[in-house]
């Protein structure tokens, strides 16, 4: 049962990822990324990361993707020209990507990670639940939590400064 769920999630995530880089219209790419993110949230559930999966759906597939959809609609469908400034880019880039995958696969499967060929230890009930994550965040990782909230604030102010300026006011 778990295998079936994994392969469905993996197929959805991979199909979404390939659709993001293959579709020419940025609007469709954003929608393909939503499929990718939801499939990935399913995989997170299989890994018993319940809170992260919920945050993935709410934060990513909800809020961030709405932001992307708005910007894609505001900017409009920009057609990429067919001519290439760098000759051979469309052939060399997938080759390099394939080489990167082979290297990573060798690193994962070929070296001392043999211990990970199992499912991992059985975890107690409540592993990855909001209560467990909240305890970790407010006790062990309190500084990282505060730094992340500061970073979000700085990013929001930066975006307003960047995009909020009217024409002719600078």
């Amino acid at each position: 049962m778990q295998e079936v769920a994994f392969f469905f999630g993996a197929f959805g995530a991979l199909a979404g990822a390939i659709a993001v880089i293959r579709l020419r219209n940025p609007f469709y790419s954003v929608l393909a990324l939503v499929i990718h993110l939801i499939s990935l949230a399913g995989l997170f559930l299989l890994l018993q990361a319940e809170f992260v999966a919920a945050a993935q759906i709410v934060v990513y597939a909800g809020a961030v993707m709405v932001l992307y959809v708005f910007v894609a609609a505001y900017v409009g469908g920009v057609d990429e020209p067919f001519w290439e400034p760098i000759p051979g880019q469309r052939i060399i880039a997938p080759l390099l990507g394939g080489a990167l995958f082979v290297e990573l696969a060798i690193a994962i499967l070929g070296t001392g990670l043999k211990d990970f060929a199992s499912e991992g230890p059985s975890v107690e009930l409540g592993f990855g639940s909001p209560a467990a994550i909240g305890e970790l965040m407010l006790e062990k990782f309190l500084i990282a939590f505060e730094a992340a909230s500061m970073l979000l604030l700085i990013a929001a102010v930066g975006a307003i400064v960047l995009a909020g300026r009217r024409e002719g006011s600078d």
Binding site: A10, I18, S29, F101, L113, S118
Partner: peptide, 30 residues
């Protein structure tokens, strides 16, 4: 499912994203 499957899938998705950054030219898609 063993951990290796998840790691290989993650490597595959990472290389897909890297190829996308290399071949696309719209900053939104990047």
């Amino acid at each position: 499912m063993s951990t290796e499957w998840y790691l290989v899938l993650s490597a595959l998705l990472f290389s897909t994203g890297a190829v996308g950054v290399l071949i696309r030219r719209s900053p939104l898609v990047i």
